[in-house]
Design a protein around this nucleic acid. Structure first.
Lengths: 224, 224
DNA sequence: CAACTTTATGAACCCATTATGAACGGAGAG
DNA sequence: CTCTCCGTTCATAATGGGTTCATAAAGTTG
């Protein structure tokens, strides 16, 4: 499911956009202004943002600026009033990926959303999706529905590695080599401890499970 | 002499890989893209393939796919751009044996090449298919339709050995030598116990059966 | 059919491997 | 500087694969 954050203070327009997105198989997450949007970004994994420029509190420009500062490279589709061309320029400079002028043609919107997502796919492949669970290696964060969980580095990469190749058995040494580095002096048993912690964190997770393969190592199995 | 096919469109990188391989006693055969690689495969005996994914004409994915379709089970070491994690997944599913992330660490490459060759040498076929049943020796797992069953090592290799040569009679000693190791002190009767457990596990399996040959040993017979 | 040999099977045991809790040290944030 | 959090190590508990053993069953031979 692709999550699209819709930032728009006009209730009717926001609802319209949401409906259209839903109809095309996207999952809209709505915010009434930039401030609200930034809060949602902390807890939701967002694939794309559709944002108005003129908004109370934090406006579209500031939203993008703060977004990029925080390290997000989420593509943004700006919505701007027809008459203000200056805005468009400014919006581009601030890191917008595309823009639309009001009044919005919903078909055009869907086309642009599709194009942006396609383009982003190439540059934004650092995430892993397993059912409701999303691993985002840019922020070493795991998103699970509403919740987001910032993992310690080692734990994150360990999980990421295992889930990148479901069912593949990794020996401790392989995991050490790939996550700790080839020349690491660390005891391979350290892996066990991290596996243990991951299991504790995700013990109630229906999507996957880390399985011990006695004498060999570990593997992740999906259960969905 | 071990022949390694290097498929890489970047001239400098291809040359670098070739040089390193030569230095380590391998014989590199180079191709600039997948199309070229497929032609070379027809005329050269190739032990292992190192292939980029992004290439003109036939890309890495298609190369592997067509390779497998043509019946080659040559091990493939994929080279993928660092940022593209999806690629790794796709590449893996398509029949890759291992992967490396650019920029390439040549020492790591040599290690992986060695590991792949070793693995391939011992068991050239990593997957055994008997009707609905698939034995995957990478994960010591037996797949039966939707279900998968992770076996204990000894049991798996025992079954794998027997099914690799259907109808061939193995003496206990042969099985001990090949699975337990030549110098194992273990009582040959241990084989019986493992056979017994395998029979219990697969008693309702229509594909094969383990038959006792009194005074000699055991053999697997297919029934499909 | 009786005596003997070989194999099947269930159970118990052993021990290497893994799980787990806790403690320590160090780096980075506040 | 202190405090927190992460990574690591260590000690101990628990697990389960592998083996052995005892007994039952099946097959072979005279």
């Amino acid at each position: 499911m692709i999550n699209i954050l819709v930032v728009e203070d006009n209730d009717k327009l926001r609802q319209l956009i949401g409906t259209v997105l839903t109809k095309h198989g996207y999952n809209p997450v709505v915010a009434v202004d930039g401030q609200h949007a930034l809060e949602l970004l902390d807890t939701h994994y967002i694939d794309l943002i559709i944002s108005d420029i003129m908004m109370p509190n934090v406006d579209g420009y500031e939203l993008i600026q703060r977004l990029r500062e925080a390290g997000y490279n989420t593509p943004v589709l700006m919505v701007t009033a027809k008459e203000s061309f200056k805005d468009k320029q400014r919006g581009y400079l601030a890191g917008t990926d595309d823009y639309m002028v009001k009044p919005i043609d919903v078909n055009e919107m869907i086309l642009r959303v599709g194009a942006l997502l396609r383009r982003a796919q190439i540059a934004n492949e650092r995430r892993l999706v397993i059912g409701e669970v999303i691993l985002d290696s840019d922020s070493i964060t795991v998103y699970r529905g509403e919740k987001s969980l910032l993992l310690p580095q080692k734990e994150f990469y360990l999980l990421y590695k295992l889930l990148s190749y479901p069912n593949k058995i990794f020996t401790r040494q392989q995991l050490m080599d790939e996550i700790w580095g080839m020349d690491s002096e660390t005891d391979a048993r350290t892996v066990d401890v991290h596996i243990n912690r991951l299991r504790e964190r995700f013990k109630d997770c229906p999507e996957f499970e880390i399985v011990t393969v006695r004498g060999l190592g570990y593997k992740a199995v999906k259960r969905c």
